[in-house]
Nucleic acid binder design. Structure first.
Lengths: 243, 243
DNA sequence: AAAAAGACATATGTACTACATACTTCAAAT
DNA sequence: ATTTGAAGTATGTAGTACATATGTCTTTTT
C-alpha cells in the first residue's frame, strides 16, 4: 500500500517514456515512409500489393489499407483498380486548401494567414517587373478602367479582387497565384471582423490602382513596392494590434 | 451487327457524360463534408459513431471508416478510444509539410516554391518594423557579428540561415516563420542545381547583413525592402530564365 | 461517508473472410 | 488483323468477430 518513492525534482516525462501509444496503423505508416524513402521511389513507380505489404509487415490487410489510405489522402500514392498502387506527385497546396476553413481555424491562425497574404503581395514587385508583357499590362489597364468607372461598393470590391488576381497572374508563378487565391477567403473573413476597415477607403483604391499600373509600366520594382505598401498599409496596421 | 449511326461532327465526349466513376468512399466523404458544413460543427464537437453513420448512409462501417480516415489524416477530426470522434482544428501547414519532398515534386513546382520563399522574404519589412524590439535586435546583432567572423563556407551558410531565421522570428508571425522553415529544404535543393550561384557570393552576405541590421535599427521599411531586394537579387535573377 | 476497487458498457482499432468491380492479358473467332 | 470473349488480378466493399482503452456504475473498504 505504500506509494512508490518518487524523485519529485525531475519531471515525470523525463523519466517515463510514453508507452507505445501508437496505433498499429501509425507504425505501419512510419514503416512505409522509411520504405519509400530508402527505396528511392519516384512518381510513377509501382509499390507492392496490399497483401504483400501485409505479409511483409506481419499485419492485417485492413491496417495496411488504412495506412495506405493516408498516403492516398495526401496525394503521395494513387491506386487504380488493377494496376495496383503507384507513387504520385502530390499537389502541394491541395491539402492545405481543403483545410482552410474559417469554421475550423482559430482566429490567431487566420490573422497570421492574412498577414502572410499581405506579405506575399508586398514582395511581389520584382516578379512582376521580370515577367510583365505588353499584353498583360493592357489587360491590367482595362481592369483599372473598370475600377475607375465603378460606382457601387459591390463593384469596387469585385474589381479590386480582379486587379489583384491579374497581378498574381502576371507574376507568372502559378503556385503563388493559387496560394493567394486560397488565402483570399480567410483574408476576407478576418476583414469582416474589423468594421473600421470597411469604411470609405474603397474609393481611393481606384486611384491607387492607376498609380500601381503606371509604375509597373514605366517605373521600378522599388517604386512599385513602396506604392503597394501604402496601398495595403491600411490593412496591415489593423492586424495584430498587440503590444 | 450494323454499327450505331453516329454524328461524327460532334465529339463523343461532348455528348456522353463520363459515368459516375467515384468510389463509394468518395461519395461518403462528400456527404460528410456537407454534413459537417451544414451542421455548423466546430472544433470539439462530437460526431456520430461509426455505426450510426454507416446506418444513416446505408453503407458498411468499413467504407465509413475509410472516409473518416481521410478527415483524420487532414486533421479535421480526432478519435479517441471510447470518447468517439470529435471535430478538431487542423494544422494548416502540417499537411503541406508532409508532402514537401524534393523526391516527389517536379522541378517546376519547386522553382515556384523557391520563388514564393523569396517573395515572402522581400515583403517582410513592414512586419519587422512593426514588431521589432530592442532585445530582438540585440540578438540579431550577435548573429551578424558571428557572420562577420565566419571564415569557412560551411560557417557562412549556417550563419546566413540563422540570420534569416531570426528575421522571421522577429516578424512575430509563427505561421510565416514555420512556412519559411518548411520551404527552406526545397529552396536549397533548387539552389544545388544552380552551380553559378554557389560561387563567391557568400562573402558579401556578411556585409549585407550588417546593412540590413542597421536599417532595421534606424531606417525605414522602404529602405529595408530595397536592401533586402538587392540582398536576394542574385537568387531571383537566376530563377526561371524562361522567355 | 468518502475513497478505492471492481465489474460492466461502449466506441474505436485490428483481423479475417468473402465477394464485387474494374482493368489487364491473352486466346479464339470472324 | 481487328474484334470479341474468357480468365486472371489487385483494389474496393461488406460483414463478422474480437481486442483495447475509456468512461460509468456498483460494491467494497477504511
Amino acid at each position: 500500500m505504500q506509494p512508490l518513492a518518487i524523485n519529485n525534482k525531475t519531471s515525470l516525462s523525463e523519466k517515463l517514456q510514453p508507452i507505445d501509444n501508437q496505433t498499429q496503423t501509425d507504425k505501419i505508416e512510419i514503416s512505409l515512409w522509411e520504405y519509400f524513402k530508402n527505396g528511392n521511389f519516384q512518381p510513377g513507380d509501382p509499390i507492392p500489393k496490399e497483401v504483400e505489404l501485409a505479409k511483409a509487415l506481419n499485419v492485417s490487410r485492413t491496417s495496411v489499407r488504412e495506412a495506405l489510405s493516408r498516403f492516398k489522402t495526401l496525394g503521395i500514392i494513387e491506386s487504380r483498380k488493377n494496376r495496383g498502387m503507384v507513387i504520385s506527385s502530390p499537389d502541394v497546396l491541395g491539402n492545405m486548401e481543403r483545410v482552410l476553413n474559417p469554421q475550423l481555424l482559430d482566429d490567431e491562425t487566420m490573422r497570421e494567414i492574412s498577414e502572410l497574404r499581405l506579405v506575399v503581395e508586398m514582395g511581389l514587385g520584382d516578379l512582376l517587373f521580370k515577367r510583365k508583357t505588353d499584353a498583360a499590362l493592357a489587360k491590367l489597364e482595362a481592369i483599372v478602367e473598370k475600377c475607375e468607372k465603378a460606382t457601387t461598393k459591390a463593384e469596387h470590391i469585385k474589381n479590386d479582387a480582379e486587379f489583384h488576381a491579374m497581378l498574381y497572374k502576371i507574376s507568372g508563378n502559378k503556385t503563388i497565384q493559387r496560394f493567394q487565391k486560397m488565402l483570399l477567403p480567410i483574408f476576407e473573413y478576418i476583414l469582416k471582423g474589423m468594421p473600421e476597415i470597411n469604411s470609405g477607403e474603397t474609393s481611393n483604391n481606384a486611384s491607387s490602382h492607376r498609380v500601381l499600373l503606371e509604375i509597373l509600366k514605366n517605373g521600378t520594382p522599388e517604386g512599385f513596392n513602396v506604392q503597394m505598401r501604402s496601398h495595403l498599409s491600411s490593412y496591415l496596421t489593423k492586424f495584430h494590434p498587440r503590444p
